[in-house]
């Protein structure tokens, strides 16, 4: 293929499908019980310097408990896929610029810093404007294709977007001429994260997962990542998985750890379970404006709690979760 041009952005992650195959050759396949606490899962499977990916869509079906635990354990120098990242990125940025080292060192950006209509995160902006984080530009589709290529076990996929833009120029994509048609294409390199986390509705102890609603890029992320942590609203028996296998969207052999975390996407939305807590999200955004206020906020909600359950209990507990459930199911007059 005739190379026309290439983006000058750094290529984070190794797109080699051969080296990925060598890794997957050694990945355990047995139907073992992988249930553990979030603390243990993060401690065992997330390492300093890892490339980390997180599922869901910013404030929807995100694995909040694992994101908090990564910051609480002070994981350092992660590379991160900023794939429609909003509150998830905001949480990880709490590990930068506050005297605890740098949780984030590099970002593949399709969407970061913003929280859609809620506005920009002041602290995520500080982190991204500081010069201490390196980043490469992508788009939602092309970053999704990086996971998809890896999930397929190929080193790249072609796409018809990015072309002609500065987003291409600051990406790590290549532009080529298609050998079949003569059309110009962007080649998007595979991304095999070292570790990824998804929050799902139901999983069995082996890691067979069910997701309700939109899947965003989660099915490809689960297949692309070398190690996968699952948090689920509910653990279900393996018999229930086998009763209706058409509902399984991630098979167990992709998964390394399963953690049962009720309300695990809070303060994000979990489809059919609970709506996002807009008041808490606004509280978080407001606290970030001033660094001392933000330190105190993080002490109360992140560092000063032992686990995720203590966090949501500090945010209003069961009565708040029930109110968000009523909002989600349109039983409430709000939303």
């Amino acid at each position: 293929m005739n190379l026309l041009s290439q983006g000058e952005g750094a290529l984070f992650g190794d797109p080699s499908s051969n080296r990925a195959r060598q890794f997957f050759a050694g990945k355990p396949r047995a139907l073992t019980d992988k249930v553990m606490t979030v603390r243990e899962a993060v401690s065992r499977f997330v390492h300093d310097g890892d490339y980390f990916a997180s599922g869901g869509f910013g404030c929807s079906r995100i694995a909040t408990a694992v994101l908090h635990e990564i910051v609480r354990q002070g994981k350092q120098r992660l590379q991160f896929a900023g794939h429609t990242a909003t509150h998830d990125f905001q949480i990880l940025c709490a590990g930068n610029g506050l005297g605890r080292g740098a949780t984030i060192a590099a970002v593949d950006i399709s969407y970061v810093v913003g929280l859609e209509a809620r506005g920009l995160s002041p602290h995520a902006r500080r982190v991204m404007e500081s010069g201490e984080v390196v980043f490469t530009e992508w788009s939602n589709f092309t970053l999704a294709l990086r996971f998809k290529a890896a999930a397929m076990g190929v080193p790249f996929l072609p796409a018809r977007s990015l072309l002609g833009s500065d987003t291409f120029r600051y990406s790590a994509a290549h532009a080529v001429v298609c050998p079949f048609t003569g059309e110009k294409l962007a080649l998007i390199p595979a991304l095999y994260p070292d570790v990824a986390v998804l929050h799902v509705h139901e999983a069995d102890c082996h890691g067979n997962c069910r997701i309700l609603g939109t899947t965003v890029s989660d099915l490809d992320i689960a297949r692309a990542a070398k190690r996968v942590l699952i948090t689920c609203e509910r653990l279900i028996p393996n018999d229930e998985i086998r009763r209706d296998p058409s509902r399984t969207v991630v098979p167990f052999f992709c998964v390394d750890a399963v953690c049962e975390v009720p309300y695990g996407s809070y303060p994000g939305n979990m489809p059919y379970e609970y709506y996002s807590d807009e008041e808490h999200l606004h509280h978080w955004l407001a606290a970030e404006k001033d660094l001392e206020t933000y330190r105190a906020f993080l002490e109360r909600y992140l560092y000063g709690v032992t686990d995720f359950e203590e966090y949501w209990r500090r945010c209003g507990g069961l009565s708040r979760m029930q109110e968000l459930r009523r909002q989600e199911l349109l039983l409430s007059r709000h939303h």
């Binding site: 900023g82 429609t84 950006i109 399709s110 969407y111 970061v112 810093v113 913003g114 920009l120 902006r125 991204m128 404007e129 530009e137 992508w138 788009s139 939602n140 589709f141 092309t142 977007s161 990015l162 833009s165 987003t167």
Partner: peptide
């Protein structure tokens, strides 16, 4: 720093 492309470029 603004959010970036998101899905806009695509």
């Amino acid at each position: 720093r603004l959010p970036g492309s998101g899905g806009a470029n695509d």
